[in-house]
Design a protein around this nucleic acid. Structure first.
Length: 105
DNA sequence: GTTGTGACACATT
DNA sequence: AAATGTGCCACAA
């Protein structure tokens, strides 16, 4: 059964390990196409299952949260990520250290 | 049923 | 180096 782009995106986000973060582009790439980065944003926007879709673990290329919208507050993400052991450099996450390396099969 | 918008990223100018 | 345009999917009007 062919899952829609959204479904694939959700699966990719769910695969993000604890204490790490991923970028929209990476999620999109894992979902099938990097160009879906925009779709990823929308997918998290609807976020139908926040219990399995940690939007706060998803950041943009800057290692920062969305410029346009934040998850229910903005600081919300920082607290959640810090609770997982992720350090925040000002408003940006230390991606060089915490960006999720997609397993290459 | 069509048009427009939206949590981004990349290529080109 | 920075700014603009382009591409993709799903949903709202």
């Amino acid at each position: 059964m062919e899952q829609s782009a959204f479904e694939k995106i959700y699966e990719a986000v769910k695969q993000i390990p604890y204490g790490q973060v991923a970028t929209y582009g990476q999620i999109a790439a894992l979902a099938g196409n990097k160009r879906w980065a925009r779709v990823v944003g929308y997918a998290l926007h609807v976020n139908p299952d926040p219990d399995h879709i940690p939007c706060y673990r998803v950041v943009n290329k800057e290692g920062r949260v969305s410029d346009a919208f934040a998850f229910g507050g903005g600081n919300r993400q920082m607290e959640l990520l810090k609770a997982e052991g992720v350090e925040f450099t000002g408003d940006c996450v230390n991606m060089a250290q915490y960006q999720w390396e997609r397993p290459v099969y």
